[in-house]
Design a protein around this nucleic acid. Structure first.
Lengths: 226, 226, 226, 226
DNA sequence: GATGAATGAGTATTCATTCAT
DNA sequence: GATGAATGAATACTCATTCAT
């Protein structure tokens, strides 16, 4: 913070130290602002919170979408970390549960992220990449649990993100009335994840394939048609 | 007052024929447009689609909110009808399932309705009324199933709308990639609704009370949903 | 008030009994509505108050301006009547005073009329005709008083309407705070109208000629230039 | 804080040069446009005249009211200056006359200002402040003249603004036909202001108290002035 | 004739994005 | 590089006026 405030600047690409600093500031500000107000927050809001000019925001991120995108990526990175942590836990069932819980916690705390998930006009681009990194981890989490017989056999890795979407739906609706209820519904879902027993129905409709998952992400934002 | 100084004024609704027709056209158009684009659609869009001028839309509905409201009411009425139909079915489990399925179908088909549910700036007022009419029906549906021992004892009537919210979350995300997957997750949830067995966890976090449900509806939402 | 309120209807033109009735109703309604809300009142407001449809208003008056115009004329007719009454009074000073007072009272009671006077976008057309009828009366009032030596010699008949405009200005500003203050300023003006004494300045700037008065009335309403 | 990690941020107003220039341009344009068209002029009109985009106008002034307000303030400041100048003149009568004349000139030249005074939807807040600054000056002007015996004893300081309103009324009506006639009526009024003589009536109706003056300003005015 | 439904240009305001300093 | 000023298309809503019934 004190020394070498200005970068080495030898190679072309890497941002100057202070530029990178600004980038971080903006991302942090955007996270806060979007978390509080949702995605309709103004870029001026973000800039003000970050203590920079709007121009600076635009220098770092081509447009609002890109900023949301970057944020999205960051959050997904957090999810990846969570998944990695979960995998490190040898408890097949417990690790899955804890992953879903922590992911739910992230989603419940962040309105902007929920909007991105549910009505994303922004940010779908980078998701693919992040999801790609997630996928093997989640797959491992799921198959390992299935191998241990603690999770129903017809669960698919792509079901996991959808479980999160469901929790996001709950969290959004109850956001003020009772921010924590999503845990109730996670419990319900967890019971549904257990191995088949009497009365269990096989899951109809196959899960989305990874390719479909991709496609879902790329769905055009649905702006005005005319 | 005696000699008819004023011509025939007083027939309750003379030209109402075409006016009502237009009202229907507008509602139909709004349904389509909101379904496709969500609530950020312009009233001009609606008017264009209906083939009328904006002024006509405003003549019928004081503002955008009122239009969404009317639409919402219509849909919620449909839900009420669904619940009534379900109650008429003596099969305790089947009726609940069929209700959830049909409600899911409605939600899945209508992006505007989903937004209304989740990010609504509009229409929360009427939801209360509709929910009020729903509540006894849903309560009956749930308690009857519990009495018959086909549903877990700790399920509460206010859980039902949340199940719908979850399905809405799924439907929104997969809306183009695979509009029907929500059925897969309904199945998962249904398995979770079954009576407690080994491995079932008691639901943590109490369900929302009806009062909290009310409060959730009245939560000041975001201004623009996108 | 009781007999023959409606014209003989023999020739082609005169309105049907009920049509004329409607015309009166509309004028009465307009008077009320404009008095209360000023000229920005909607023609729908007027129609509603009159208990007729807007279409009827438009059948009787080509546009809003014409309606305001007609109203204006009506009021000016009242002024004419006032002037006639004043002339009947042999008291040269008293009659002038009483005319100004009554005219002031009319103006003070009617916001629409004040607006018409002060910012008229409407109604200037017919004023000419009414003013034409007024002029000889007012002229007589003034010259008679001058002949009797009770009014300053340089007062001109066209000054009279301007005295009204001034009172209108006062009345508008104090309309709620103290509706009656205009009388205070009328008194001030009356003192100014007295014959010249020591300290009296001759009036600079000639009064408007009748032709200029005409012109003032015809001043284009000053809408948007582009 | 030591090594300037952030580039020069903090110079109180860097580019303000051109911004301030634009602000001036906008105010000037608004003055013109409002003067010509009155307050119903569009902010687009103002922007067009100023040669800037509407957005720029909105960047400088939160809304139309604020712009009118700023303009109003400027003008009222001019009035205050006028009053100060008048007080500096030792001639008790002449200074009062010259103040009324100059104020009349301002009002006569500016249709927007007249509307603001008489039908203002805007700007009433600041008027209060300006009036507050004016009041002691005007009071001094009046009482000094009364002490010198050159003005009638029953004149009150709150009469002064009303004299202006009267002149505004005249000026508005004759604005095109003869912009200068208001001087004629000022002369008339001035004669009325002279000390009581034979034939002078005591002013009926007390003048407005300062509190009533305040109240008059706060009167909810008409929405659109035309 | 009367009615009130329909029309659409017009108004204030917002906000993503560009660009001169 | 950073700043924040400028831009203008877009949006919800109003109201004078026209016209089908």
């Amino acid at each position: 913070m004190t020394s070498t405030p200005v970068p080495e600047r030898a190679r072309a690409r890497p941002l100057r130290r202070d530029a990178e600093l600004n980038r971080q500031r903006i991302l942090r500000a955007a996270a806060e602002v979007f978390t509080e107000q949702g995605l309709q927050a103004t870029l001026d809001d973000v800039a003000r919170r970050a203590g920079v000019g709007v121009g600076t925001v635009y220098r770092r991120f081509p447009d609002k979408e890109a900023l949301a995108d970057a944020l999205f990526t960051e959050r997904l990175d957090a999810l990846v970390t969570l998944a990695e942590g979960a995998l490190a836990d040898p408890d097949e069932w417990g690790s899955l549960v804890s992953f879903l819980e922590q992911a739910g916690g992230l989603l419940a705390a962040d309105r902007g992220l929920r909007q991105l998930f549910m009505f994303a006009t922004y940010g779908r681009d980078r998701v693919g990449q992040a999801r790609a990194r997630m996928q093997p981890l989640v797959t491992e989490l799921v198959t390992r649990a299935q191998a241990a017989g603690v999770v129903r056999a017809d669960l698919r890795p792509t079901d996991v993100p959808f479980i999160e979407f469901m929790l996001a739906g709950v969290a959004e609706y109850a956001r003020d009335a009772r921010p924590g209820v999503w845990r109730r519904y996670l419990a319900l879902l967890l019971d549904g994840l257990r191995p088949a027993r009497a009365g269990t129905t096989a899951l109809p409709e196959p899960a989305l394939t990874p390719a479909e998952m991709e496609a879902a992400m790329r769905t055009p934002p649905l702006r005005r048609p005319g």
